[in-house]
């Protein structure tokens, strides 16, 4: 096992991590401000990917498609906020879970109705389809580095938005004391719609970026949704910083688990069995991580309002 191999796997962990962060940031923001648990966040991820693929196919430009994906996800977010989510803010988590679970069914079938049952084509922009040489040999796909760049930009952007802008001030106010923002004369409905749309847009961004790398198909949002929940639960629900740390942790554990666990098992077992057990353990690793973190810190690594 060469140093380049380990370095490459670390880069892979980082790339998975920042992508999960973009996905989880929206989820945790919505929870922090409105106290809403949104299972349909994965559907917004899917909306972003489908619109990106569709528009990129029509115009021939990935970047135009990406813009369209962001707009579509934000718009879908704003619409469901006004039609559905708004009625759920003062309900308990149970109602929120069921209502947003229903939204998943609606979005999945709706998307299939509009776009058809077959997966859509979306490839990375031609200019990014090369790899960059790594120190110690081998190459690393440029597009994955670009994704890391998008992720870091999102993190910085969110930090600036929340700490430096008027909207950010209102968001912070909303997180600590919901009644206060009403008293400040802020139109709370608009604020909530805006925050939800931002969260949705982030999901759409993740969907479009990852869709180009993976596949654009109905139901693509659910596995990612569960990962994003693992991330925000580990980080502390409502905490953006927690989401970042949680995402990197999950990225590390998942990638390194897949890369090394079966080799660990191979020390004690014949290769075929080691592969099987290694793969089984690798798919459970992040849930194990989550259980350990919560057993140790029941409100996550960075508890909000503790």
């Amino acid at each position: 096992m060469s140093a380049a191999f380990i370095f490459e796997q670390l880069l892979n962990s980082l790339q998975l991590g920042v992508m999960l962060f973009v996905m989880a940031a929206g989820l945790t923001l919505v929870f922090g401000v409105m106290g809403l648990i949104n299972l349909a966040h994965g559907s917004l991820y899917m909306v972003g990917a489908f619109f990106c693929a569709w528009v990129a196919g029509e115009t021939g430009s990935f970047w135009v498609g990406l813009g369209a994906g962001l707009v579509a996800a934000a718009a879908a977010g704003a619409v469901i906020e006004m039609l559905v989510m708004r009625r759920l803010y003062d309900r308990d988590h149970l109602d929120q879970v069921l209502a947003t679970f229903s939204l998943i069914l609606i979005f999945n079938e709706g998307t299939r109705w509009v776009f058809g049952a077959q997966p859509l084509y979306l490839d990375i922009p031609a200019g990014l389809a090369t790899s960059v040489p790594l120190p110690g040999g081998g190459g690393y796909p440029l597009y994955r580095l670009v994704i890391i760049g998008f992720g870091i930009a999102t993190a910085v952007g969110l930090y600036l938005l929340i700490s430096r802008t008027r909207l950010g001030m209102q968001i912070r106010a909303g997180e600590s004391d919901r009644e206060m923002i009403g008293a400040l004369g802020v139109d709370i409905n608009t604020l909530y719609t805006l925050v939800f749309a931002i969260g949705a847009m982030l999901a759409g961004l993740a969907g479009a970026l990852v869709g180009a790398l993976q596949s654009v198909e109905v139901g693509m949002g659910e596995p990612v949704l569960i990962l994003a929940f693992v991330v925000i639960v580990i980080g502390g629900i409502g905490s953006i910083k927690g989401a970042l740390i949680g995402a990197i942790l999950v990225g590390l554990v998942d990638t390194l688990g897949r890369a090394f666990l079966h080799k660990l098992f191979a020390l004690a077992l014949p290769p075929a069995e080691a592969n099987g057990y290694g793969a089984a353990m690798a798919s459970m690793a992040i849930y194990l991580l989550m259980a350990i973190v919560l057993a140790w810190r029941p409100k996550g690594l960075f508890p909000v309002n503790a």
Binding site: R144, V210, P223, S283
Partner: peptide, 18 residues
Amino acid sequence: GETFTKLGQKDYAAELAA
């Protein structure tokens, strides 16, 4: 080499490196 991946997995960065 022989690798079993997680069912439903969509990111193969780790496997491709291997």
